[in-house]
């Protein structure tokens, strides 16, 4: 019998990552816009949370491979289902791409890649001036895209919960796994 909710590990990972991703987007956009002393702790925090999110998204892919997500309601119109699937694909692509682009960008700039104060990640590629600039801009554009996708995702989730009332919101928001 298929479950009507996401598995416990999937829900736990979703909500941890939701908090971290939103925090990450705000940290990122704030740290590059300030000349204040908050820059001193925002940048290391951004790198540490980014590395954490990369590990979490890999764990989430594994959980998703083991526990298939519940199907969308049968009565949901086809185009809406297609949009839902596409938006989830975009979210996963960005969750994987953003930390990897960030890591690659720091590598191309010849920067040390320091996380949690003491851990130094190896560079993903050799220092390359032009590649640094390209990846640096790409990191920003992907982050804006992720922000807009997260807002769309949040709005759609609230519409399922408040307007459609079709169980889709509960499939991720439920405390307990339901059959």
């Amino acid at each position: 019998m298929t479950s009507t909710t996401f598995s416990g590990p999937a829900r736990l990972l979703h909500w941890i990552m939701a908090v971290l991703i939103i925090a990450m987007l705000f940290i990122g956009v704030a740290m590059v816009a300030t000349v204040g002393t908050s820059h001193n702790w925002l940048v290391p925090l951004h790198k540490s949370v980014g590395a954490t999110l990369l590990v979490l998204v890999l764990a989430r892919l594994a959980v998703r491979a083991i526990h298939r997500p519940p199907p969308l309601p049968a009565e949901m119109p086809g185009p809406q289902k297609a949009i839902a699937h596409l938006s989830h694909l975009v979210l996963y692509a960005l969750m994987i791409a953003l930390p990897l682009v960030g890591w690659s960008m720091l590598s191309a700039g010849g920067y040390p890649i320091t996380v949690f104060g003491a851990l130094h990640l190896p560079p993903l590629l050799s220092p390359d001036r032009a590649l640094y600039a390209t990846l640096r801009h790409l990191h920003t554009y992907l982050a804006y895209t992720l922000f807009l996708t997260v807002i769309a995702h949040l709005s759609a989730a609230l519409m399922h919960g408040l307007l459609f009332k079709d169980g889709v919101f509960q499939s991720m928001a439920a405390w307990r796994t339901r059959r």
Binding site: T34, V35, G109, R136, H137
Partner: peptide
């Protein structure tokens, strides 16, 4: 020192400009 954090964020902007 307020200059120190500013040096970091300003150098980063300059670095992105010139490497591009």
């Amino acid at each position: 020192d307020p200059l120190l954090a500013a040096r970091s964020s300003v150098y980063a902007v300059g670095y992105t400009r010139r490497t591009g």
